[in-house]
Nucleic acid binder design. Structure first.
Lengths: 219, 219
DNA sequence: AGCATAAATAATAA
DNA sequence: TTATTATTTATGCT
């Protein structure tokens, strides 16, 4: 399963700054939203319709849902979480299972008002809790979400994790190996010499670039 | 060029709600022990340097840059903009060219403090302006950014079983066809060239994900 | 109801 | 920087 593997934690959570801007939704553009398929209309298609929809016994405030969906996305991104992570976490904690698709469809309002109404409080509660844990540190958030605490981003192909490990250990000992040494390392790992050489170049670059900035990172 | 094609505007801008979250407006520590070394620091020296770096005549507040980088990302996402869009827009308005990679590196702080210091005001100014236009409506923002007003995501292609079969047989022979070959395959199958190119990308991806189980099984 | 995967976006080897 | 991979999002389908 592709989705299951997408649990890397590459982006540290960020804080939402109070935004002065008031954004308009792109979904309110056309006045004639063709409701394809003879199905039930989706929330996103009902934006120009009456704000309240009566479904069964309760009335649903579409505007409220729309607002929440927008904010949910921003807050999710602020926490550095993916749709997949949210879905998996929800599946783990609550009763029903939520796929990445479900989260995606909620954010895009590609669901029926009834479904949205049902899902909204679940997401709201979960998100608030996630934000709560996040304030106590990213570790807590990741634990809450259920992902690996600090899983390393998978390297781009060429190198296997094992090779990376070896390379890093060499790098630790000597960041600037001689041509001779590069040749030997390349042979040991069975990689192209040039590839190894470039790896050291990029590795030095990255270290140089990040170490200054992150030198006094608060964590 | 792959990047050039990535100008679709799929995600509608979202509103940042005034967050109740406690915002540390400036975590800047007051301790500043500027180091005076005119040239670029060597790799091993960079791990434990102070917050302020003196480069030439000006001192660089690393914490400030770090803070800005975080907020920049959130604000960019709030506007519904991609790194590619920002880079292209900047390239159009400002003097130097900024690639998607450049924006990515800034957000990840994978650049030298000097570069970051130089880029920060440019991004800050541009972003503020973008937010300004956005307040006047998404159309204005898109115009400012330079993208098509309401470009939609490409419709998902459905390959016929026959086409899949042919594609797979090509893939079996060569998983990484050249541009020339892609063009030919696309013509033979009467599909868009880009669609075929992406198919091979995704196919390689899928194979990689499942390679542990069926290394050479096609399908 | 959600899987499989096409398309889009971000990260990175070269 | 550029080209490509890695990762995420979106959607066609039954």
């Amino acid at each position: 399963n592709t989705q299951a593997a997408a649990t890397t934690v590459t982006q540290s959570p960020v804080v939402i700054a109070p935004q002065p801007s008031v954004l308009k939704s792109a979904t309110t553009l056309s006045s004639t939203v063709p409701i394809t398929c003879g199905d039930i209309a989706k929330v996103g298609q009902l934006m120009n319709k009456p704000q309240q929809v009566v479904s069964g016994e309760e009335s649903i405030n579409l505007e409220e849902i729309r607002e929440f969906a927008k904010n949910f996305k921003i807050r999710r991104l602020s926490l550095g979480l993916t749709q997949t992570q949210v879905g998996q976490a929800l599946t783990a904690t609550e009763g029903p299972a939520y796929s990445q698709s479900a989260i995606c469809r909620f954010e895009k309002l590609d669901i029926t008002p009834k479904s949205a109404q049902k899902l909204k409080p679940v997401l709201e509660k979960w998100l608030a809790e996630a934000e709560h844990w996040n304030q106590k540190g990213q570790q807590n958030l990741m634990e809450f979400v259920g992902g690996e605490p600090s899983k390393k981003r998978k390297r781009r192909t060429s190198f296997t994790p094992q090779a990376i490990e070896v390379l890093n250990s060499y790098f630790e000992k000597n960041a600037l190996p001689t041509g001779q040494e590069i040749t030997e390392i390349a042979r040991e790992l069975n990689y192209d010499r040039e590839v190894v050489r470039v790896w050291f170049c990029n590795r030095r670059q990255t270290l140089k670039n990040t170490s200054k900035i992150n030198a006094f990172q608060v964590q």
